[in-house]
């Protein structure tokens, strides 16, 4: 996380990396309740060693001049990250905006669990549920915004 990102390069990820990227992003948006629900169903939170964190720090958010031009630093956001290793040896990463260390650690554990064949499907199901929730929230927001769209109509003058 130390390197300064220069651009948003078009990277071509392997199918495996693409799946993991999607998983980590969805776990970053999962609520503590959603994650605990899944972990309870598989017998509780497994033993996990903290390799890093959970720790809260800052990420400097960058923007572009005019939206598309050169980079500038907009301001920072709090980010919490955790890296854990399970008894099976699987390593998982979790990170999310905000300062919730418990949530970051749970998402790291779930990322690690997804690296083990026994629990991959469970975690994928959780991720699908999170994605569906976000989709519902976004659709609602878009529909509420659409209701405030201006429909222009032209007044016909009567005196010509």
């Amino acid at each position: 996380m130390q390197t300064a990102a220069k651009t948003n390069p078009e990277t071509h990820l392997s199918a495996q990396d693409a799946a993991r990227k999607l998983r980590i992003e969805r776990l970053a948006r999962a609520t503590v309740e959603e994650m605990e629900g899944v972990l309870e169903a598989i017998g509780g939170v497994p033993e996990a060693t903290n390799l890093r964190g959970p720790e809260t720090g800052l990420v400097m958010i960058r923007g572009r001049m005019g939206g598309t031009g050169s980079l500038f630093n907009l301001g920072e956001a709090t980010v919490t990250r955790a890296t854990v290793r399970l008894a099976t040896g699987a390593v998982g990463h979790g990170q999310r905006l905000g300062g919730d260390k418990g949530a970051a650690r749970l998402s790291a554990i779930l990322d690690a669990l997804a690296e083990t064949p026994a629990h991959r499907a469970t975690v994928e199901t959780l991720c699908a549920a999170v994605a569906a929730r976000i989709e519902t929230e976004d659709s609602r927001l878009a529909a509420e915004t659409a209701a405030t769209r201006v429909d222009f109509f032209t007044m016909v003058r009567g005196d010509d």
Binding site: M1, Q2, T3, A4, A5, T7, N8, G57, L58, V59, M60, I61, R62, G63, R64, L71, N73, L74, E76, V79, R81
Partner: peptide, 8 residues
Amino acid sequence: RFGYSNAI
């Protein structure tokens, strides 16, 4: 400081 984001 953990790092810098890609441009939003």
